[in-house]
């Protein structure tokens, strides 16, 4: 399900970085976290729990671990504690992570 972002990003000037979200190219202001970029791009889930429940970034400060996504191939990365880098590959996660990267489903 595609859900529009629940946030409006102020039109500020400044540098931007390119990344991909589930393979789709996207842009975000430089200096933001992966979690901020995620919720700026979608209002939908960015992680599904082991039981299949939809979740997305919640606390934004490293406490809740609901923002876990795959960043540059590393699963269960805390998106809110990771600065978005130019060229980063970000993937939403479904279910538990696997041993050699990737995840269920």
């Amino acid at each position: 399900m595609n859900v529009a972002s629940r946030f409006r990003t102020l039109p500020e000037t400044g540098e931007s970085v390119q990344f991909t979200l589930d393979g789709v190219p996207a842009t975000a202001p430089a200096g933001v976290t992966v979690a901020a970029a995620l919720v700026a791009h979608t209002g939908a889930w960015t992680r599904q729990t082991a039981q299949g429940a939809p979740r997305t970034a919640y606390c934004m400060m490293g406490v809740c671990f609901d923002c876990l996504v795959e960043v540059d191939g590393t699963p269960n990365t805390q998106a809110c504690m990771t600065l978005l880098g130019d060229g980063m590959t970000v993937r939403r996660q479904t279910g538990l992570r696997n041993l050699n990267g990737g995840h269920d489903g």
Partner: peptide, 8 residues
């Protein structure tokens, strides 16, 4: 550790 989806 964190949980893994696949089995050792």
């Amino acid at each position: 550790t964190e949980k893994l989806g696949d089995r050792l």
